[in-house]
Simulated assay, not measured.
Amino acid sequence: MSRPLTFAPPAGTHAGPLRTSRGTFASLVTPAAGSAAPEPRPTVLLLPGFTGSKEDFTAMLQPLATAGYRVVAVDGRGQYETPGPDDQAAYTQGELARDVLAQAAAVGTPVHLVGHSLGGQIARAAVLLDPAPFASLTLISSGPAEVTAAQQQKIKLLTDALARLGMEQVWEAMRAMGPPQDADTDGEPDLRRRWLMHNPAQLIATGRQLSTEPDRVDELAALPLARHVVSGESDDTWPVPLLDEMAVRLGAVRSVIAGAEHSPNTDRPERTAEALTAFWDRHCG
Rank of each mutant, 00 (worst) to 15 (best):
D236V: 10
A183P: 04
V230A: 04
G285S: 10
G23A: 07
A258N: 07
S35V: 12
S136L: 04
I204Y: 00
G120R: 01
G232T: 13
R192W: 09
D281R: 15
D75I: 11
G34N: 11
R193T: 15
A33I: 01
W280M: 03
P241Q: 01
D218W: 01
G187L: 01
R164Q: 15
T237E: 11
Y80H: 14
L113G: 05
Q152V: 03
R249D: 08
D267A: 09
R22W: 06
L165H: 14
R124W: 03
R268M: 13
P224W: 06
T82Q: 04
T66W: 00
E270T: 15
W171V: 05
G178W: 05
A37C: 05
R282Q: 14
D281S: 14
A247M: 12
L118E: 03
G119A: 09
R19Y: 01
H198E: 08
R193C: 00
A205P: 02
T266Y: 02
L203T: 10
T272V: 10
R3Y: 09
A102E: 08
F279P: 03
V71P: 04
G76A: 12
G52T: 08
L46G: 07
R249T: 11
M60H: 09
H283N: 08
R208K: 13
M167I: 06
R208E: 13
V29T: 15
V71K: 09
L165A: 11
E274I: 08
R124V: 13
T51G: 04
F57D: 01
T109S: 07
P224M: 03
F50E: 01
V72Y: 05
P31D: 14
W280Q: 02
A183K: 08
T66K: 10
L64P: 03
A89E: 13
T30P: 02
M1N: 02
A150F: 06
H116S: 06
Q103P: 02
T6C: 01
T6L: 04
R208Q: 13
A37D: 13
A59M: 08
M174P: 00
G49M: 13
V29R: 14
P180M: 14
H228I: 09
N265E: 10
P83K: 02
L250T: 12
Q181G: 03
P83I: 08
D236G: 15
D99N: 11
R208V: 03
L113N: 05
G23K: 12
V229P: 03
S255F: 07
L18P: 03
T206W: 10
G84N: 12
G52P: 00
V230H: 05
A161I: 04
L210K: 05
G232D: 10
V107T: 11
Q169A: 15
A26E: 08
P10L: 05
V147A: 04
V107Q: 07
G143S: 11
G23Q: 11
M197S: 14
P180N: 09
A11N: 07
V240K: 13
L96W: 04
E233N: 03
P48Q: 07
M197V: 06
I204F: 00
V29K: 02
T185K: 13
Q93S: 04
L28K: 10
L5I: 15
P38I: 14
A132K: 14
D160M: 00
P40Q: 06
G187K: 04
D235W: 06
A273W: 13
L118A: 03
A8S: 10
L118T: 05
